[in-house]
Write a protein that binds this DNA or RNA. Structure first.
Length: 480
RNA sequence: GGUCCCAUCGUCUAGGGGUUAGGACACCGGCCUCUCACGUCGGGAACGCGGGUUCGAAUCCCGCUGGGAUCACCA
């Protein structure tokens, strides 16, 4: 039997990285077994579902390279388009007595819960409508047509339900602990646990891979499978991703959506690698290509305990992938971040690549790289007053002038020749490289930190370099 | 509170009866050096507690403690 896994996000908000990791593992498992990965949209909640959110899901997965074999835009993979199927299944359950109408109102249910809580009993539904007689061909609820009731699943009262989880191992649930859950709401909409079962059944999902927050739902879903005469799929419940405070990762932990990381200048390979390695391992290996991930992935190598999201390690991975990227590709990826910043690019693609080459080992994200690149890109730079006070002293003026002249007379304006020009100036004034490089650095970049001074000059070009040196000379007078 | 899940450095993890408990991120120090980085070398840092089983337990079993998830006419 070929493996079929699915990822079923609901389009009700940003695509969260904790959530997308479950999708990643489902995808890896399917790819590893040369099976199919299905993307299904859980949009039964039409109030909260939006197209923006749907697009974000699709774009995020595409950006990460998690491609689906079946799913959108095919309309059959949207729950909203499958209501006929849910209704049919609910009628079947009503006919064979595995479900029943419940006439309790939301207010009554609420009161029931509160009462139980006061008496320190479990807050579940007490089954008061369970044994009321009803016609087997009773219509499904529809509050607008006056059929103001819900349909509940008749859950077995005795025995136990065993989940043999691929990640967690065996979990045994006492059926007496499971109350009769609503499978159809009074507005005629099926609930999640019911719709999910039918989808997983109809799409012939062999392995349900999801976060372990769904583990408590699993015995209920298995019971519905059985009531429908179907065999449940295998389950793999992955541990959650937590924030630094140890609680389930959520918006209040800051940037958590895939888009947020994309926009912050992270590379998809880095995020993918990081997410895969959170809760899964392959010996001591830290860096994995997509193909390696697929080749090595296995639930046996998944940990059982929740993992805390570590932004520093993600940063390190991003840095790694930026360093090993082909230069022209990295330059191409940096470009939109420069544009977004409203900065001009004073050269062609080859120039941009040279600029990126000097910066890539100093920046951990694309955004950070652009931060460092400002002095290359802007015509006018701001000089840090403290740096100027320390390095642009009046006695440096003639030295900088001479360097400008030397640089002006070079034939081939390359690093080698630039270095030779420096050496001539240093020899003439009896200076060491450090004594010359820092003032020049301040003059050219506005600060005391930059790539090697020869490469900076080579990238900046003769015109700009000389202009900035002269500017700096003028400033030494005003300082002095 | 009920139910379920989980427990090795700060974090991600390897190790599943005998190991100086390994790696990675982060941190600290040396080297490299025109600054900052990169790189490189080195360092500190962990088996939650208590009982068993065993010649021997981080490893197997039980309990405790701690953490998490979940208990909707949300998904």
């Amino acid at each position: 039997m070929t493996v079929r896994t699915r990822y079923a996000p609901s389009p009700t908000g940003a695509l969260h990285i904790g959530n997308v990791r479950s999708g990643l593992f489902a995808w890896l498992f399917a790819r590893h077994h040369r099976g199919a990965f299905i993307l299904r949209i859980d949009d039964t909640d039409r109030e909260r579902s939006t197209v923006e959110s749907l697009n974000e899901i699709l774009e995020s997965l595409t950006w990460l390279g998690i491609e689906w074999d079946e799913g959108p835009p095919n309309p059959e993979y949207f729950q909203a388009n499958r209501f006929h199927r849910y209704r049919e299944a609910a009628r079947e359950l009503l006919r064979n007595g595995r479900a029943y109408p419940c006439y309790c109102t939301a207010a009554e249910l609420d009161a029931m819960r509160k009462q139980a809580e006061r008496e320190h009993r479990k807050p579940g539904y007490d089954g008061r409508c369970r044994d009321k007689p009803f016609p087997p061909d009773i219509e499904l609820p529809d509050a607008r047509a006056g059929r103001n009731y819900t349909i509940r699943f008749r859950s077995p009262r005795h025995g136990e339900t065993v989940v043999d989880d691929l990640v967690k191992g065996r979990a045994v649930f006492d059926n007496a602990e499971l109350d009769d859950l609503i499978i159809f709401r009074s507005d005629g909409v099926p609930t999640y646990n019911f719709a999910t079962v039918l989808d997983d059944a109809d799409f012939r999902i062999t392995h349900v891979v999801r976060g372990d927050d769904h583990l408590p739902n699993t015995p209920r879903q298995m019971q519905i499978f059985h009531a429908l005469g179907l065999t449940p799929p295998a389950y793999a419940h992955l541990p959650m991703v937590m924030g630094p405070d140890g609680a389930k990762l959520s918006k209040r932990h800051g940037a958590t959506s895939v888009f947020a990381y994309r926009d912050a200048g992270y590379l998809p390979e880095a995020l993918l690698n990081y997410l895969a390695r959170l809760g899964w391992s392959h010996g001591d290996q830290e860096i994995f290509s997509r193909d390696e991930l697929i080749a090595y992935f296995d639930f046996d190598a998944c940990g059982k305990s929740a993992g805390i999201f570590n932004p520093e390690k993600l940063l390190w991975l991003n840095f790694h992938y930026m360093k090993e990227r082909p230069l022209d590709q990295l330059a191409r990826e940096v470009r939109p971040f420069i544009e977004k910043r409203g900065l001009p690019i004073p050269g062609d693609d080859a120039w941009l690549a040279k600029m990126v080459a000097t910066l890539r080992e100093r920046a951990k994200t694309l955004v950070e790289l652009v931060d460092f690149a400002v002095f290359y890109l802007k015509d006018e730079i701001d000089i840090d007053p403290k740096a100027a006070a320390k390095f642009l002293k009046p006695e440096m003026a003639p030295v900088l002038m001479e360097l400008a002249n030397q640089l002006g007379s070079i034939d081939n304006f390359n690093e080698e020749a630039i270095k030779a020009a420096f050496e001539r100036v240093m020899a003439g004034h009896n200076l060491k490289l450090g004594q010359l490089a820092q003032p020049v650095r301040v003059a050219l970049t506005g600060g005391t930190v930059s790539p090697g001074i020869f490469e900076v000059i080579a990238v900046l070009g003769r015109e700009r370099t000389i202009a900035r040196l002269r500017d700096a000379v003028r400033k030494t007078h005003s300082v002095g």
